[in-house]
Write a protein that binds this DNA or RNA. Structure first.
Length: 897
RNA sequence: GCCGGAGUGGCGGAAUGGCAGACGCGUCGGUCUCAAAAACCGAUGAGGGCAACUUCAUGUGGGUUCGACUCCCACCUUCGGCACCA
């Protein structure tokens, strides 16, 4: 190697240093929890992934954020728990394995090994002694234990009901896993409704607590809390019983006070009393309507919002308040899944009932009259809502409408309760959690079906029920486990008679609803985790993940934590004290176009498939026009033309992922981390670009180029740093030294505060500013000085959360021993932030008309005098009358004329 | 339709009542080089002026204030969530 290349290498950030430090951290156990017994603790956790194999830099963002916090708290002297695991069971893993034509187990473990390697070379440090893998028997054994705990507590039950069936994935799904368009969250297929007997977790028992405790989660994004509130969907009102020929018909209403205005009733088509209440002469109509409703998908049922369909079924119900006979209809705007599946219709005071009544010519009776107006149903054009007083309502006449004390709703409930025709009631939109899955790759449900039809738990000493290793695991509408006859046949644990195992597996979200608890005691083979361990670490201090889990995972995890809290196993009844939802990493997709001739391009097959484009070769202009509506632009790169998309989320399917391995080898993980952290605030999505990479690289190169040549001199300052922290006596410093010293403390403060507030982009920006100052200072001062030495020592420490490899490298150059994470975080000195002289802005009529430098202690009177005697200001105010002078000490003087 | 967030240079973004555009990218000019790259130095919101300087400018319109990106009201756009929930 020649001298020049050696020198060049020295002056640049060298990614080959990284491996050494990663080995060092792992060997020394720097990020193993419990390293600092007695120190304050922090539990930092990123949502664990399902093992997809090769990681790209987009996956990294989530982990980098957790790693930054882990290292920040480590260097501050905390005992940090930062564990990792694999959400290895479930549909995503199983479907991918099927597609790859491999056994899910083999596929999963291969991917885990690959992903783990990527995380390793990215320098994300975890306490791997606590790694959990949900598809391992030593994990799902406790998943089965948890199921049985819920069963014992009456929170797991088996019931026959109308459930969501995914025809593509061939399994049932929980409500949370079906989107508003009626599609599976995973397969995207329109779900069908099937009547099946399935296992449920009784999450509705916890609805009130899940709702109320959201208020205690002050460090959760408001957005996520709102989504959970909407999902739980609490409504307060009353149940009212109407009598019919087939017995009592109960409805739920939030407005029992409008009962006197109920002029008909509507049942959901699936309502159990429909058959009994259908009069013979209406049977044909009703059957047709039911058939039509069943044919409609969820989308159809919700897309025709305004247009109501329904039929009269030939029966009447008695309105309990006045004995009136009101007709009973069925219509699919009434949903079986909410309330009681039946409503009393009050067309004058409900928009939907109004539309229905207008369509079918039913009576509209006004029972709430606004002051000064005369509403009547016949002429009411717009459905009306608002305040008023009750009319035509017997004992409630004259009472003001409203939910408060002394208002109509409370009065109506009191009346119903006194008459025995109803009571106050609360309804939630949240339903019990359907956890059975007719799929292979999951935790077997640890229950046994006895010959007499009863169901008993597998005795604890027979857990785990190990997932059998079968080769024919493809989904086929019932669990593939049912075909494993040897496994299914089992002796009744009490009588020894032949019995059969439950052949369904559990929803993978059960696995992920408590993994953060297992991390506190991952190797415990006697219990799910010890009380002491969960007591040490829970709740998770900072949870980091994507917004896509706002309802699913986060709601389930809160539920299970509350159940375990009630059991006395966990000290906290909320699992995640603070939640951070990070934005996506995006990148443009670049597709090279074929150029059969000069000025002519042809779209390649992959692009034509994605968007409708002509197959034949076209001119550059025509290509540009064709691409534009699809969000692509045409760019020239040398001789080749490329179609370039807008930024889209990095993914395997979009083909725009930057693989971690090759990138880190070429540039270093510190560069990747800087790109991700600096480009945008972490909650925003960010675009990964070559220019961004170059910028990050430039920053690290400049650091190395500045510090490396002076590292010996800086090392001398190390002893001083150790003795005094970041502080130096400022007496005798030159102005430029004093200024640099002040800038150091400004930076320490900013980086500290920004890091704690997740403003990593501005933290890094302030370090860049300090670096620019250092370059300027070096030009001024020429050589290494005690101030420069202290700044460099602190700088290495400030880098430790963000670019850890370089930070350790600098630390060792600067004479540091052991790890920088034991070296302490710099503490800023408020006194050092104060400038001797500050610039004060002079304004005339709020417009900047000059600036003066004044001593920082200058008082109001002095500032006023200086401002008014300023030449520039005098010119401006000449001949004008001064009306007012506003002086803001340390900032500005504004003269109003 | 309802609820919530956001709107700032060519771009990502800073600034939460006091000099709008920190930091970075890009672009332009320069130094070095046979040349290029890299690196370094300088410029860079728009308009006007030879210049000192000046006008306009944070989605739109209004308001509060000596002073508004920042606070208040209305609207527009956009992103996200919910959506026949009785």
């Amino acid at each position: 190697m020649t001298e020049t290349t050696t020198k060049k290498r020295q002056d640049r950030f060298d990614p080959t240093i990284e491996a050494h430090w990663r080995d060092f951290w792992a060997r020394e156990g720097i990020f193993t929890a419990g390293r600092r017994p007695g120190a304050p603790s922090r539990y930092i956790l990123e949502m664990f992934p399902y093992p997809s194999g090769d990681l790209h830099v987009g996956h990294l963002k989530n982990y980098v954020i957790g790693d930054v916090l882990t290292r920040y708290y480590a260097i501050r002297g905390y005992d940090v728990l930062h564990p990792f695991g694999w959400d290895a069971f479930g549909l995503p893993a199983e479907n991918a394995a099927i597609k790859a034509k491999r056994h899910p187990r083999e596929w999963t473990y291969t991917n885990i090994a690959e992903s783990k390697k990527s995380l390793g070379i990215a320098g994300i440090m975890y306490d791997w002694t606590r790694e959990v893998t949900t598809c391992a028997p030593d994990y799902y054994r406790w998943n089965q234990w948890l199921f049985q705990l819920l069963y014992k507590k009456g929170l797991a039950y088996r019931a026959k009901s109308l459930v969501n069936w995914d025809p593509v994935d061939q399994t049932v799904l929980a409500n949370e896993q079906v989107d508003s368009a009626g599609r599976s969250w995973r397969s995207g297929a329109i779900v069908e409704k099937r009547e099946l007997e399935q296992w449920f977790f009784k999450i509705t028992d916890y609805a009130e607590r899940l709702l109320n405790d959201l208020d205690t989660l002050t460090e959760w994004p408001e957005r996520v809390k709102t989504m959970q509130r909407n999902w739980i969907g609490k409504s307060e009102g009353a149940e009212v019983h109407f009598s019919t020929s087939a017995g009592d018909l109960t409805v739920f209403t939030t407005r029992p006070d409008t009962l006197w205005g109920a002029t008909f009733m509507v049942l959901a088509p699936e309502h159990p009393l429909v058959a009994a209440l259908t009069a013979t002469e209406h049977k044909a109509n009703v059957t047709a309507c039911l058939a039509a409703a069943r044919m409609k998908s969820e989308i159809d049922r919700t897309s025709t919002v305004k247009e109501k369909t329904g039929v009269f079924i030939g029966s009447y119900a008695t309105n309990p308040v006045n004995g009136e006979q009101i007709p009973i209809w069925i219509a699919d705007y009434v949903l079986m899944g909410y309330g009681t599946g039946a409503i009393m219709a009050v067309p004058a005071h409900d928009e939907r009932d109004f539309a229905f009544a207008r369509q079918f010519g039913l009576e509209i009776r006004v029972v709430v009259q606004p002051e000064g107006a005369q509403l009547d149903g016949a002429t009411m054009i717009e459905w009306w809502t608002g305040d008023g007083v009750l009319v035509n309502s017997g004992p409630l006449d004259g009472i003001p409408a409203g939910k408060g004390e002394g208002q109509s709703v409370k009065a109506a409930i009191a009346w119903l309760e006194a008459q025995g025709r109803g009571k106050g009631a609360i309804t939630y939109r949240l339903h019990d959690w359907l956890i059975s899955r007719q799929r292979y790759w999951g935790t077997p449900i640890p229950m046994i079906h006895r010959a007499d039809g009863t169901i008993v738990p597998v005795p604890d000493d027979q857990l785990p029920v190990v997932l059998p290793d079968i080769s024919d695991f493809l989904p086929r509408g019932r669990s593939p486990l049912a075909a494993a006859e040897d496994w299914v046949s089992v002796a009744d644990p009490e009588t020894g008679e032949p019995a059969r195992r439950d052949t369904d597996t559990m929803d993978t979200f059960v696995c992920s609803s408590w993994y953060f608890l297992r991390f506190t005691d991952a190797q415990n083979d006697r219990e799910i985790f010890s009380k002491e361990s969960s007591g040490t670490w829970m709740p998770v201090d900072q949870y980091i993940g994507g917004i896509e889990h706002a309802i699913l995972h986060l709601l389930y995890a809160r539920f299970i934590t509350k159940v375990l809290y009630d059991e006395g196993l966990v000290p906290a009844d909320e699992p995640f004290r603070a939640l951070f939802t990070q934005g996506m990493v995006q990148r443009r997709v670049r597709i090279a176009l074929e150029t059969p001739a000069e000025g002519i391009v042809q779209f390649p097959e992959e692009l034509r498939r994605k968007i409708e484009l002509p197959a034949e070769a076209v001119s550059i202009d025509a290509a540009r026009t064709a691409l534009k509506p699809h969000g692509y632009t045409l760019e020239q790169d040398g001789a080749t033309w490329e179609a370039v998309s807008g930024p889209v989320t990095m993914s395997k399917s979009a083909g725009n992922g930057v693989p971690v391995g090759p990138f880190v080898r070429q540039y270093g993980s510190d560069v990747a981390r800087t790109v991700v952290l600096f480009a945008a605030p972490p909650e925003n999505s960010m675009e990964w670009t070559d220019e961004g990479v170059a910028g990050a690289q430039r920053f690290l190169n400049r650091l190395v180029a500045l510090f490396r040549p002076d590292s010996e001199a800086i090392a001398d300052a190390g002893a001083r740093y150790a003795a005094t922290g970041a502080r130096l006596p400022t007496d005798g410093m030159s102005p430029s030294e004093r200024n640099l010293y002040r800038r150091l403390h400004v930076t320490i403060k900013k980086v500290t505060q920004d890091t704690e507030a997740f403003r990593f982009n501005t933290a890094i920006a302030s370090m860049m500013e300090l670096l620019n100052d250092l370059y300027r200072y070096r030009t001024d001062a020429g050589l290494a000085t005690p101030v420069f030495g202290i700044v460099a020592q602190c700088y290495a420490r400030l880098l430790a959360p963000f670019t850890p490899h370089l930070a350790e490298e600098l630390y060792s150059w600067f004479g540091g021993e052991g790890t920088i994470y034991d070296a302490g975080w710099p503490i800023w000195d408020e006194a050092a932030l104060i400038e001797d002289e500050i610039e004060v802005v002079l304004q005339v009529n709020s417009r900047v008309r000059g600036k003066i430098n004044v001593p920082v202690q200058a008082n109001e009177e002095e500032l006023r005098t200086w401002a008014l005697s300023n030449e520039r200001v005098q010119r401006e105010i000449e001949g004008k009358q001064i009306r007012r002078v506003i002086v803001v000490v340390g900032k500005l003087v504004n003269i109003v004329v």
